[in-house]
Design a protein around this nucleic acid. Structure first.
Lengths: 221, 221
DNA sequence: TAGATTGTTAATCGATTAACAATC
DNA sequence: TAGATTGTTAATCGATTAACAATC
């Protein structure tokens, strides 16, 4: 039931929810939702039907009903913890970024190979040494791992996290990870993302007509 | 000529190049390239033809020829600079991440609204105050902007960068940016990425058969 | 009622996949 | 030659788009 397709809808629902929370209205039409989600009205109507919401031709959709429906899709009812590995420059930025942002999804444990970075609390998150990884993840029932270590260490860390029972990985290291088919991986490769932007900017220079424009693709498109 | 489609091939070529540089062989077959690029052999053959490389039925493709072809696609001949806005936790991590990684693509200027963060050099990058933004970007001919500021400030920074002449943006703030159609935007939304992984891990729990597995999608798929 | 929107069904478009002749 | 791979063409698959009846 949990297809890759369904997972991809998470980002759509997140954009819709952010848009709905920013609005102060009671009802919305599909074309308004479409602009929030950077999609077409027909696509949005289809994805809204998928979470069991329906609208009326005269009033559109109930914002309240949409928020409830999307929240029940996005949020873990009883909260969910994640484990971060690597508390260097990037790891600290990740901890700061997620601190207090999602009540239902928090980084509840961090690990680092450097003992000087362990045994402390950063942005409300307890830091452990690497040899405590399996025990802490097992004890807290953590299902999500975040890899914030250098490229050379990433595969080893992924293997440890998977052995500890993690079912999903968010990978910041610029290497493809080999994991069992039961584990879901999303990679954030800043370097490649910057290269894409740089490629467009470079090749676009001098094209004054704008025919080669690429619009404004957002994450996950 | 610079379609969104072409830009998307950047990540494919990057994965291929990384794989080719790691190998120590002289020739490769398309199925070997396919595993490097996480695609099919037919797809890879098509994308290789697009950069003017051809292979032989007996020896496959010349690694040397592929590296030259991909490099000429990915790299700016005379180097390219990028400007970072926001030198907080995330900005520092971004500077550390890109320092010395790509000789042809470097962050050559950083800006921050906080004067205490300006007028210093971090990871080899000079930091300026925000009111110098337009002048520095114009002087250095910078075409790429990186947005590492909080969500509330992101749109304002994007507007300033676009006015200064930037043609592409890499956005780390979790908000969709409104930019002219001539400007290309790629957003990296860590929060939504983590939510996707968390959603899979949560809904996958208890499905022992593995039929709902999602494989290992990499960035940009 | 008139009008705009919803939800469904048909058509189109594009991309991926499969098949096959050419090549070394 | 035999065999495996390349590069091209045809077929299939899926998704997006367009059309339309139903609804308030």
């Amino acid at each position: 039931m949990v297809s890759e397709k369904t997972v991809e809808r998470v980002s759509l629902y997140r954009r819709l929810l952010n848009g709905l929370l920013a609005e102060g209205v009671e009802n919305v039409y599909s074309h308004e939702l479409a602009s929030m989600a950077s999609g077409t009205a027909a696509q949005v109507r289809r994805d809204i039907m998928a979470i069991g919401c329906s609208g009326s031709p005269t009033r559109g959709y109930s914002v309240q009903e949409l928020i409830v429906g999307i929240r029940s899709f996005l949020d873990a009812g009883d909260g969910q913890g994640a484990a971060l590995v690597g508390v260097g420059n990037l790891g600290l930025a990740i901890l700061a970024h997620f601190a207090g942002r999602r009540p239902k999804l928090t980084i509840s444990a961090a690990f680092d190979a450097d003992p000087r970075r362990a045994n402390r609390v950063v942005h409300g998150c307890r830091c452990y040494s690497m040899n405590e990884l399996a025990a802490v993840i097992g004890r807290e029932g953590i299902q999500v791992g975040i890899i914030g270590v250098p490229a050379v260490a990433a595969q080893g860390v992924a293997d440890q996290l998977v052995r500890a029972g993690v079912l999903g990985l968010l990978n910041f290291a610029p290497v493809p990870l080999r994991v069992p088919e039961t584990v879901y991986v999303t990679s954030i490769d800043m370097t490649t993302s910057l290269e894409k932007v740089a490629y467009f900017a470079r090749t676009h220079r001098g094209q004054a007509d704008g025919s080669g424009r690429a619009g404004s693709p957002q994450t996950g498109r």
